[in-house]
Design a protein around this nucleic acid. Structure first.
Lengths: 134, 134
DNA sequence: GTTACTGCAAAGCTTTTGCATCCCT
DNA sequence: AGGGATGCAAAAGCTTTGCAGTAAC
């Protein structure tokens, strides 16, 4: 945690709590999820603080924000290259680690500078599939 | 247009205007874009009507909704399998037609039923790249 | 002492909903 | 005639912003 120390970046207790919650978190939480958890320790925590911190952490490259869930933004502390699989029913998101060799056709690439890519798989998770059978 | 006729689906002038605007549209418009255009012909048009129609058209499989732009939902009349390239600056979206062979690793596939996938490429469009040089 | 952060409230946007009226079929 | 669609207003979410007070550095 200490290695996050840098100029113009203060390690406030609230920020540390948010970073601790995110660290290694595989649930791709929303701002609400983060707020609800950190509020247990900091009852005065506000959404403004959550959003401010998420934006700051994203700017610094410590987390990335996902638009895979159309209903709300999700956050991912894993900034390494990977993809996502979302359940269309419960919106659960799981990581997909695989180095897919995808690239846009050359004629588009020449005019449009491609900086990256992300694959979203969608379907039905095990729990929701079980419910379907009922 | 007439071939959209079916039971429980009325061809109102407003709906036809929305469908005409979308037909062959490659701009991946938002509800606002659609509203602003159709309002020229139907000054009484409301957002409720736009959203109602988009949802109905989506249910019937005539259009698809995209979550590639984190700021607002975009709509695409092209429901064939293709992918998208978005400009991080101006949020312009262009189609990428290519049949990428991507699939989740088998161990995930067995528990999670994968129904489809979508690739989003992101980068800088020609216009925005030009501005960068200034 | 500076500078950045917190927390509250208010506002901003996008999208949804309730409901009376309307009109396509 | 009947059932879906329209349009208005209000509400509901999610996210951002302004600002005064506070705390990290």
């Amino acid at each position: 945690m200490e290695h996050y120390r840098e100029k113009g970046f203060k390690l406030t207790p609230q920020r540390i709590a948010i970073m601790k919650f995110l660290e290694g978190n595989k649930n791709h939480p929303s701002a609400e999820d983060i707020y609800q958890d950190v509020r247990k320790t900091f009852p005065t925590m506000s959404f403004a603080t959550v959003y401010n911190n998420l934006e700051t952490l994203r700017e610094k490259g410590h987390i990335s924000s996902l638009s895979i869930d159309p209903e709300r933004r999700r956050y991912d502390p894993d900034t390494s290259c990977h993809h996502h699989l979302i359940c269309l029913k419960c919106k659960m998101v799981v990581d997909v680690y695989a180095d897919f060799k995808v690239h846009v056709p050359d004629e588009q690439k020449t005019s449009f500078e491609v900086l990256g890519s992300h694959i979203e798989f969608y379907g039905t998770c095990p729990e929701c599939k079980k419910e379907e059978g009922i």
